[in-house]
Design a protein around this nucleic acid. Structure first.
Lengths: 345, 345
DNA sequence: CTGTTAGCGCTTTCAT
DNA sequence: ATGAAAGCGCTAACAG
C-alpha cells in the first residue's frame, strides 16, 4: 500500500518547491533547461503520475463526459458509443456510460448523477419523449456550464445541439423504393411517435405515398415495439385484413424480422407477395440465409464521432454566445432481397 | 455562468462554518436537530450539490471504475458492460469504458490512463495474451490500491481475480453433442490459442473426442478469426480435403455463419451432411430463417454482474490480505437446427 | 528563473 | 454542538 508520489515528493528530493516542479512538468517557459530535465528525470525515476482528480478540482474540468442511452447492449447504441470513445479518448477525455432502461425517472437520476461528478459534457439519446417535463434538462441548460448534446433521440430544446439522421428521408427513401418495386399498398410498422425519430420516419413514409399518388391509409400503420414478437403480431394483424398490404416498411429491423417470419409461415413469399424494408441495418439483416432484409443504415459510429466533435467545439468555445447546431446525417437505404422484386442490373 | 453553490455559501448565509454544514449534510451525530434541519433546508433551497471531485481528492476514492474491452460494439462485450453498469450504479459507481481495438500498446496506454484518473478498480478483458510482457498489469498489481478483475479473456496472474465461463466445458459439450448426433469427423475452427478461452474451447473439443473413441486429427483444426469471411475460407479448406469433416465446432458464431454459407453454397446440406455448432449465442444465430445455428451461451450480462460483485468485495476489503477469487460460470449449449440431425423428443 | 502563497470544495481532528 | 485549521495534489498570481 505504498503511496503515490506527488510533486511535493519530487520537490523535496530535489530541494525545490512544488511550484517549480509543476512548471517543469507542464513545459512552462520560465524555467531553466537544467532543472526541467532534472525534474523530468526524477519524476520518471520516482514513477510520478499526475493526479487528475486534484487537477480536476483545481481547474473545474474533469475531462470526463457522460453518455446516456436507453441500453448499451444494442448494436446501434454500442456503435455510437464506440464512435464517441474513439473520438474523445485521443483528446484526453474518458467516457462514462449510463443506461436508463427507457425509464424516465432513471434518466433524470442519471443526469443529476453525472452532473454531480462534474462531467464536462453529456451526450445522450433520450428515453423520455414527453415534452412537458424537462426538469433535468432545464437544470442542465440553466447551469450553462455543461454542454448537452443529443444524438438520435432528441428533444427540441433551444440552445441544445443535436446530431441525428434524416429519419424523414430514411422513411421516404424506403417507401419510395417499395413503390418503385410496384407495391401499391404499403403498411408501416411505426413506434412511439412521441419520439421524433419515429414520427419522422412515419412522415417520410406518408409523404412518399402522397408524392406518388398513393392514398394514405391510417389502418395500415401499426404502432409496434422494436421486438421480433411484436413484429409478428403486427404482421398477423395485417395479414388478417380484408385487403392485406403488399409491402411493409418497418421502423425497426427486429419488428421487420418478426413480420418476415410470420408472413413466410403463413405461406406467402417475400418479396414476391410482400416486400419488406426495415430500419437500422442491424447485423442480422444481412446474415439472413434466404431473404436478406433491406434496411436503412444510420451510420451509428459516424453519429457518435460527430456528436463527440460537437461536444469538443462547445467545450472549447469560451465565449458567452452559445452556438448550438443541429447536425443531420444522411441515412442510406440498403436494398436486399426482402424488397427486390424485379431483378435489376 | 453562475457558480455552483458550495458548503461555504450556505455556511455564510447561515452564519455557520463549513465544517458544521458538512456535518449536517453527512448526518454526523454531533449536531443539533435544529441546525441540521436548517442546513438541509437552505441546501435544498440553494440547489446545493456535493462536489464529488473534491470528495474524491479528499478521500482518495473516485467512485469510478474503468472497463477495458477490445471493442464495445459487439453483443458480448456490450452485454457484459450492461451487467457491470446495472450492478455498480446503484452502489454509487460510474463506469468508464475504454476500447483497445485489440492492440496491446493501446491496452497499456488505457490502463495507465485509467490509473491516472484514480479509478477505484479496473475490470477488463485482455487484448494481449502474451504472457511475457505484463508491464501494465504488474504496475497495477504492485500499486496494491486498485483492484483488477479480469473477465472472459484473462491472464493467470497471482492475486488477480477473474470471472470467466468454463470454456472447456463449452467446447466439450458442443463436441459431445456433435458426437451424439452421429458425427465422426469433427473439425474445429479455433482462434488464437494464446488466449485461454480459445485454448480451453479447443481442449474441451479434443477431450470430448478422446473420451468417445474418436482420434484427434490436427489437420481438422484451423485457426480462424472471428469473421464471416474467415469462416468461409476455413470451410472451403475443409471441403477441399480428401476426407471432409461431417461436423464443425466453431469457437465463433461469425466463423460458424461463414462456414454455413460456404457449405450450403457448395451444395451440401446442414445438418444432414455437415453439422455446425458455434460459440457465443450471438443474436443472429437464432434469427436464421432456415438453419438456426446451435451455439454456446456465455451469459455475458451475468458475467458482468458477477465481475462487478467481485470488484465490490475487493474494494470493501480493508485488510491487507488480498483475497483473489477465480469464478467460473457455466455455459449452456443451445441446440438448434444446424446440428440437430435426428429429430428428438 | 524560482519561491511563496492562496485556493479549488470537502472532511476531519482538535479545540472550545 | 460548533468553530478553527489543516490537508488531499495541483496550478497560478505575485514576488523576488
Amino acid at each position: 500500500m505504498k503511496k503515490k508520489t506527488t510533486i511535493y515528493d519530487i520537490a523535496a528530493k530535489l530541494g525545490l518547491t512544488a511550484a517549480t516542479v509543476s512548471r517543469a512538468l507542464n513545459d512552462n517557459p520560465k524555467i531553466s533547461k537544467n532543472t526541467r530535465q532534472l525534474v523530468l528525470d526524477t519524476a520518471m525515476e520516482m514513477n510520478y503520475e499526475q493526479n487528475k482528480v486534484a487537477l480536476a478540482l483545481k481547474s473545474g474540468k474533469s475531462y470526463n463526459v457522460g453518455v446516456i442511452v436507453p441500453r448499451i447492449d444494442s448494436n446501434f447504441f454500442s456503435s455510437v458509443i464506440r464512435g464517441i470513445e474513439e473520438e474523445l479518448h485521443p483528446k484526453g477525455y474518458h467516457v462514462i456510460i449510463c443506461q436508463t432502461n427507457n425509464q424516465e425517472n432513471i434518466e433524470i437520476e442519471k443526469i443529476n448523477s453525472l452532473l454531480n461528478v462534474q462531467v464536462d459534457g453529456i451526450l445522450m439519446s433520450i428515453s423520455n419523449a414527453n415534452l412537458e417535463d424537462n426538469m433535468g434538462f432545464n437544470k442542465l441548460i440553466r447551469s450553462k456550464r455543461t454542454p448537452l448534446i443529443f444524438f438520435d433521440r432528441k428533444k427540441d430544446l433551444k440552445g441544445v445541439s443535436s446530431v441525428t439522421i434524416d429519419d424523414f428521408k430514411g422513411g421516404y427513401d424506403a417507401t419510395k423504393h417499395l413503390i418503385d418495386q410496384g407495391c401499391k399498398r404499403i403498411a408501416h410498422l411505426s413506434n412511439d411517435r412521441q419520439f421524433e425519430i419515429f414520427n419522422n420516419r412515419f412522415l417520410g413514409y406518408k409523404q412518399a405515398l402522397l408524392d406518388n399518388g398513393i392514398e394514405f391509409d391510417e389502418s395500415l400503420v401499426i404502432e409496434t415495439m422494436s421486438k421480433v414478437v411484436e413484429g409478428r403480431k403486427s404482421a398477423r394483424a395485417l395479414l388478417d385484413m380484408d385487403r392485406p398490404p403488399d409491402a411493409i416498411f418497418s421502423s425497426s429491423d427486429f419488428a421487420a424480422l418478426g413480420a418476415l417470419q410470420e408472413i413466410k409461415e403463413s405461406g406467402l413469399e417475400i418479396p414476391e407477395d410482400i416486400c419488406i424494408v426495415g430500419f437500422s441495418n442491424e447485423p442480422f439483416t444481412k446474415f439472413m440465409e434466404l431473404t436478406t432484409i433491406s434496411s436503412v443504415d444510420q451510420f451509428p459510429m459516424e453519429m457518435g464521432k460527430v456528436a463527440a466533435q460537437v461536444f469538443l467545439e462547445e467545450v472549447s468555445n469560451t465565449q458567452d454566445t452559445k452556438i448550438s447546431k443541429n447536425i443531420v446525417l444522411t441515412p442510406e437505404l440498403i436494398v436486399r432481397k426482402s424488397s427486390l422484386k424485379h431483378k435489376e442490373r
